[in-house]
Design a binder for these strands. Structure first.
Lengths: 187, 187
DNA sequence: ATCTTTTTTTATCATTTGATAATTTTTTCT
DNA sequence: AGAAAAAATTATCAAATGATAAAAAAAGAT
């Protein structure tokens, strides 16, 4: 998925603005298991996934929560860094070797302040992430872990091939052992 | 809390743009228990709370999830209506008589497309809601219901006086009876 | 003020999930 | 291929939460 498609998916931008925006991206390839974003640092860049898969997680004390998986077309972003220029609560690691489009938050913010089309793209970007966040929240509150598991693999059928059950369990808010038990009781 | 303060809290706007924006708001007073937003309809307006408290909730089958409580300065919004012009999953009811600032989504979107300052205000608005949504998600995944309850009343000490325990339980993702038991085991 | 309705508490039992440990299966490395 | 490491399953017991019902307390209505 190339950067043009990724940007358009959020919101179409007129061609001169899009050229300005696309010029700011750099393409990088990073290895599997790379911890690309750390919660203890302000992250200066935002990434879009051309190819590969990443996991966003947060740890407190000794427990860890998987917040999201990002696949092709998704964003790798520390929200608090991007929005508030503060260190965030997200760690993001690459679960496969990834091809990424990278852009500096500073450049992006400059474009927001000078180009209304790009500003509205940025608005749409945040809005769509917000919709996703709310949907995720609601579906996590509803139903049993079994239902949520079935829902997840229905919505993301390839996830099981790409991600270990331990991480999926942490995404569902249960332990890996519980997920194993749940799987044993469905088929 | 007046509309000027509410807007500035999100992001300062230059004075001529702010005048344009403020002109679009209308002040309304609505009674307690009014279901101001229904999930089965596309909602044409957005509201900011001058005074009062509202509850956002979603129901599926016969279960109900409280997504948020909105207090002074917060927004009453159907995200899917506002962002995608589709009917949403949120119902919003007023838990007290409320004084609200009301604006049409159409007018707001027109301003976004013509005024870069307002577009960036709209971007910031979505971004800040996004941060809140993610924080809420994480804190709901972490810890026991007891910890989440204690956290909630620490953060929103007046909530207990304004909202019944049944609604708080639904916000915490547990039953009202469980919350009662939890409360019995802390003091 | 009294009655009615709603909210909250308490109790009991069932179900789900967690914690831990042992075992099996799969993946990775050389 | 074979050894080592990682991931997944299975089993057992403990803890947390749900479902239901009954009683007590609080809030609202006339």
């Amino acid at each position: 998925m190339n950067i043009d498609q990724i940007l358009d998916k959020t919101h179409p931008i007129n061609s001169s603005s899009k050229i300005k925006l696309c010029e700011c991206f750099e393409e990088v390839i990073l290895p599997k298991n790379k911890l690309i974003i750390r919660s203890d640092k302000v992250e200066k860049n935002i990434y879009f996934i051309k190819k590969g898969i990443a996991r966003t997680f947060s740890n407190f004390d000794d427990s860890e929560v998987t917040i999201a998986f990002g696949e092709e077309g998704d964003t790798i972003i520390s929200l608090k860094s991007y929005i508030l220029n503060q260190k965030g609560y997200e760690n993001i690691e690459l679960l496969e070797e990834c091809e990424l489009y990278k852009i500096s938050a500073t450049k992006l913010h400059y474009l927001f302040s000078t180009d209304i089309d790009i500003a509205n793209w940025g608005r749409k970007f945040a809005e769509q992430e917000l919709i996703k966040a709310e949907q995720r929240f609601i579906s996590n509150q509803l139903g049993t872990a079994t239902e949520r598991y079935l829902e997840l693999i229905k919505k993301h059928p390839t996830l099981l091939q790409r991600v270990s059950l331990g991480l999926i369990a942490s995404y569902l808010g249960i332990t890996q052992v519980s997920l194993s038990r749940i799987r044993a009781n469905i088929t």
